[in-house]
Each structure stands twice: as structure tokens, then as C-alpha cells.
Write a protein that binds this DNA or RNA. Structure first.
Lengths: 216, 216
DNA sequence: ACCTGAACACCGTTCAAGT
DNA sequence: ACCTGAACACCGTTCAAGT
């Protein structure tokens, strides 16, 4: 992932001593806090620095500018999420296709819903800049994990797995974001989640290869 | 829609004279231009005003602050989009369900893809504030239009139409946004669009009510 | 190696003065 | 009714000076 990070978003310097590491961690934590309490619009560098207990100058030693802060925050978050999805996928290799879809949707959904305000804050913090590189790297990792899982399904094969896989991920990622954006009430959100699984299953069933009927 | 707009986002004053209307239009147009050429991050009020050929002060007579500009822009855009979708839906009343889904996905997708950079700029401009009210109003309108359409399907009925409808819209809106966010190459985007229709059809087929088999 | 905070440039917003 | 633009407060970013 690091290799895909545009240079202007890279931290200026990596923490080398213990206190520096503590500083960077404090800045991350402070950023989330300010994001949650004040919103992205009222998040100022001074405020974050104050909350982290350091001076602005210190912050700028590690992050070349404000957006780099958001970038690093999202990078951390997406790394985590990709890893979670990967684990889920590996554990389902060889399983029936329905189990896979259910596990995938549930894992992704739950990960996003665990701390909804953080998720929302992050969605909003990715305003600008080359977050595309970030999202691309994330998508690539998840893509690989789910494609490998689906390829191993015990009860289904697909003529064009890459397209099927891309469609599924696009739909799942998108739906979750949509639900957050509309801030749907919990019961409606839960209903959509159940239906989404149904939908993915119906789709996979429609596009999967069926064994030829015995010749005669 | 106007009734749901939060007060602090309302234009300060409505243009009453012809030259004022021209001013407001120029400001809108300038905002889009600056958004496209400089990006949301480098969009300053002075720059927009300059491009529109007015002074900053004038801008502030109509928009209480910068965000209100973005808000108004999105409002215009979503009004338009909702109307387009509504027309599509009305024209399909009584049609078979497959035609409906196909028309819905195609209309929405094409509307968003017609001017991709504008779409992207708008997605990014809705950073903050109560865009929720805006999106909610939009969703409500589209919701009503599609629900009425699906209820009139010549070849299908649904036990829980509201949930089915909500799921479909969440998926369609979300997928389109996902495709934009990842900036998928045209051929992959096209493939996803086709698959999305397939997916919706498979889903509707799975959840639709079938006539009871004749008793015996 | 790491931290500080005053200083600078710039941007959002206002308001007294104009037509 | 509509427009102007200098003025003000504030925020992002820097850098000389410190430990």
C-alpha cells in the first residue's frame, strides 16, 4: 500500500523515538475526536493539535498538510477493514456460495456499523485529493480476497468471475454507503441488509454455471 | 422541497429584478466552473465571484455562506434528477417488471454519467451540513415514483413493496456512486451496469408473489 | 530528534458607502 | 433593490529558536 501513496500525502518524517510515536498516535486520536465532536468543517489544525496536547508545529512535522491527516486516518481504517474482510473470506474457502455471500455482507456491514459516527466522519473526511489511490488499493485487496473465495465455492462456478465479483462488491459497498448517507432508521437499515443478501444470492444463482443436462 | 430546507441554508434574499436573476445564475454557473477546473478544495468565494463577474459582497446577499452555495447547487441538480426519474416511471406504469427495472437503472445511470465531472464534483461538494434533508427529500420523491410504478406491474406483485423498493433504490444509487468513486474504466462500468440490471431482475423474481398452484 | 509558538499569507464574511 | 470592495477575524502553514 505504501508504494501507491502519492508523495505529497506521505508523512514528512516517521517517528523514530518513543515519544514521537506517542505524539503521532495522540494526533490520530485527537483527529477522530474533533471530527466527531466538531465535524469536518470545524476541524482546525490548531484544535487538533491542542486536543493532542502538542503544538501545531509538531503536527506539521509529521503531516505535510491537513488533508494528509485525513488521508492517513482513512488509510489506517481501510487497512483494517481489508484485513477483516480477507479473514472472513479465507475462513469460507470451499463453502457453499450462499454462506459466502452472507458472511461477506455481514462482515462488511457490521464493520461499518460498529462505530457509525466514526464511519460517517470518515466518509465525509475523504473529500478531496487522491483518495482514489487509497480506495483503489483497498478495492484491489478486497477484490482478490473475495474472488479467491468465490472461485473455491463447492457448489457453483462462474463464466466471468471477475465481472461477477466486481458487481457484487460495487453493490455491497455502495448500498452500505447509501444507507449511511440517508441515515436510515435502524429497522429499515436492518431490512435492507437482509434483502441485500437475498439479492446477491438471487444474482449469483442467476449467473452461475449449471451442469449440462445429461446428453441423450 | 423548499419547506424542508433548513433556514440557515436558505438564500438570504430572492432575486426580484431581472439583473439580480442574471447575477444568481451567473454565480451558479461560475460555481460549477470553478468546481470543475480548481476542485472543491481550491474553490474560494472570491474566485467564484470573480468568475461570475460580481463582487464577493453580492454573492453574500444571496447565499449566507459558502456551503449554502453547494447546497443550492445540489438542490437544483437533485430536483432535476428526481423529475427525470419520475417521468421514466410514469411512462412505464402497467409494464412488465423487467422493463421497469431496466428503464430505472438506465435512466438513473445515464443521468449521472452524462456529465461525469459534474457528477463527481457534486458528490464531493456535499461534504458537510444538513445535506441529509436534501437527500431525504430527493429519496422521498424517487421512492414515491418507483413504488407507484412497481405496484402497477402487469406481471408481479410483492408482499412488502416498501422494503423491496427501498432495497432496489439503495442498491442502484449506491452502485452508481461506488462506480464513480472508484472511477472505473468505461468498459468495466458498462459491465457493472448490465449486471446490475440482471441483479435487480433476479432479486425481484425471487421476492415476487407467485400465484398459488391450483388446489387439488 | 523532537518540540514550540509567533509570524505571514490567505480566505470567509461583514458592512458602510454607493447606484 | 442591488452592487462594491476595503476591513476584520480566523485558519493553514512556516521557520527560527529551543530541549
Amino acid at each position: 500500500m505504501a508504494s501507491t501513496t502519492p508523495a505529497h500525502l506521505t508523512p514528512r518524517k516517521r517517528p523514530r523515538q518513543a515519544r514521537a510515536t506517542a505524539t503521532v498516535d495522540a494526533i490520530f486520536e485527537a483527529t477522530i475526536q474533533v471530527l466527531l465532536t466538531d465535524g469536518p468543517h470545524r476541524l482546525t489544525t490548531t484544535r487538533v493539535a491542542a486536543r493532542a496536547g502538542v503544538s501545531v508545529g509538531t503536527m506539521y512535522q509529521y503531516f505535510p498538510h491537513k488533508q494528509a491527516l485525513f488521508y492517513a486516518l482513512n488509510e489506517r481504517y481501510l487497512d483494517d477493514l481489508a484485513e477483516t474482510v480477507r479473514n472472513t473470506c479465507e475462513a469460507r474457502h470451499g463453502a457453499p456460495i450462499v454462506d459466502m455471500v452472507q458472511a461477506l455482507v455481514t462482515t462488511y456491514w457490521d464493520a461499518k456499523t460498529k462505530r457509525p459516527e466514526v464511519t460517517r466522519a470518515l466518509y465525509r473526511s475523504v473529500v478531496e485529493l487522491d483518495n482514489e489511490a487509497l480506495l483503489e488499493a483497498f478495492a484491489r485487496r478486497v477484490d482478490a480476497a473475495t474472488a479467491a473465495m468465490f472461485a473455491s465455492a463447492s457448489d457453483a462456478g462462474f463464466a466471468d468471475l471477475p465481472v461477477v465479483n466486481l458487481t457484487l462488491l460495487t453493490t455491497i459497498f455502495g448500498s452500505v454507503r447509501s444507507v449511511f448517507e440517508r441515515n436510515l432508521p435502524a429497522d429499515e437499515a436492518a431490512a435492507v441488509r437482509r434483502q441485500l443478501i437475498l439479492m446477491c444470492v438471487a444474482y449469483l444463482d442467476a449467473v452461475r454455471l449449471r451442469p449440462d443436462p445429461p446428453a441423450g
